[in-house]
């Protein structure tokens, strides 16, 4: 690791003041950032730890939506959400492994936008709102590509509000060593619409599968997906699987999720 200073503010206001200074980056659970620092892929002058800010932690139901504050860990989300939004709790309960879930946070995951991260799929499929320290951004406008988001310098994710679907399922085909998704699909079924998002498969990160949404909104059944497949163009091809394989697995995951809910 390169040398850096570490600050440990206890209020959001204090953290934002520090982050407004040149060369400062936020540090949440660190499950991605710390290995990146060790590999010298990041070189912040100062890290501002968000882990001691109580106002950034917690889960609450707000009408028909579930609001999760940015510093909430995956483990806290699992245990706080399974009565309210079981599909999201199930997703959180499969991120990494138990030790990673003790530390990793939703805000960190959403801000990092790893192309195989789980939360972006749930956020896109449900039409979630990302709350930042400065504004509210629709998930559709927040995730902009590989590790790219709408966040500006010094701006952090303070929470995510997920509309709660009638039913939802997340089918994840994992790369067994890392437990990251090779292809995973989140299906959210609402009264009048169906949301479908894919993660792990695209070079541009998680995305909505709009053809699947249209077909399922019309007729929520596996049969309605007859002939539907994901184009290979722009899909990840690496040592774990080619683009054709990911396209095929995304189709399988979609059908499994729909079968589980139909």
């Amino acid at each position: 690791m390169y040398d850096f200073e570490l600050a440990r503010p206890t209020t959001l206001a204090e953290a934002l003041e520090m982050l407004a200074e040149e060369g400062s980056d936020p540090l949440s659970g660190g499950q991605t950032l710390i290995p990146s620092l060790r590999a010298r892929l990041a070189m912040p002058e100062r890290l501002v730890s968000l882990m001691h800010i109580d106002e950034l932690k917690g889960i609450e139901q707000r009408g028909d939506a579930l609001h999760v504050k940015g510093g909430t860990t995956h483990a806290q989300l699992v245990h706080g959400a399974y009565d309210i939004f079981p599909g999201l709790a199930s997703l959180a309960g499969r991120i990494g492994d138990p030790a990673v879930r003790t530390r990793g946070t939703i805000g960190g995951s959403v801000a990092n936008n790893d192309p195989a991260a789980c939360y972006p799929a749930a956020a896109l499929a449900t039409g979630a709102t990302i709350h930042t320290s400065q504004r509210e951004v629709a998930a559709d406008d927040f995730f902009l590509g590989l590790f790219e988001t709408a966040l500006e310098e010094g701006e952090i994710v303070t929470g995510v509000t997920f509309p709660i679907p009638q039913a939802s399922a997340y089918e994840k085909f994992i790369q067994p060593a890392s437990h990251f998704a090779l292809a995973a699909v989140f299906v959210a079924r609402f009264d009048t619409r169906v949301g479908v998002a894919v993660t792990g498969a695209s070079e541009d990160g998680a995305f909505r599968w709009k053809e699947a949404e249209a077909a399922l909104t019309e007729d929520f059944s596996v049969a309605a997906l007859e002939g539907l497949s994901l184009p290979e163009q722009g899909l990840i091809a690496d040592v774990h699987g080619g683009a054709d394989y990911r396209a095929r697995m995304a189709g399988v995951m979609l059908r499994r999720a729909v079968a589980a809910l139909a």
Binding site: L6, R8, L27, G30, Q31, I34, P35, R38, S49, M51, A75, G96, D97, P98, A99, V100, T102, R103, A177, S178
Partner: peptide, 25 residues
């Protein structure tokens, strides 16, 4: 880097990978 679990310790009773945390946190 958090894949093997050999460094697992309990922090306030919960398991974490000690290699993926800074002591100062």
């Amino acid at each position: 880097h958090g894949q093997c679990g050999a460094c697992t310790v309990l922090v306030n009773g919960r398991r974490i990978n000690a290699c993926l945390s800074l002591a100062a946190m």
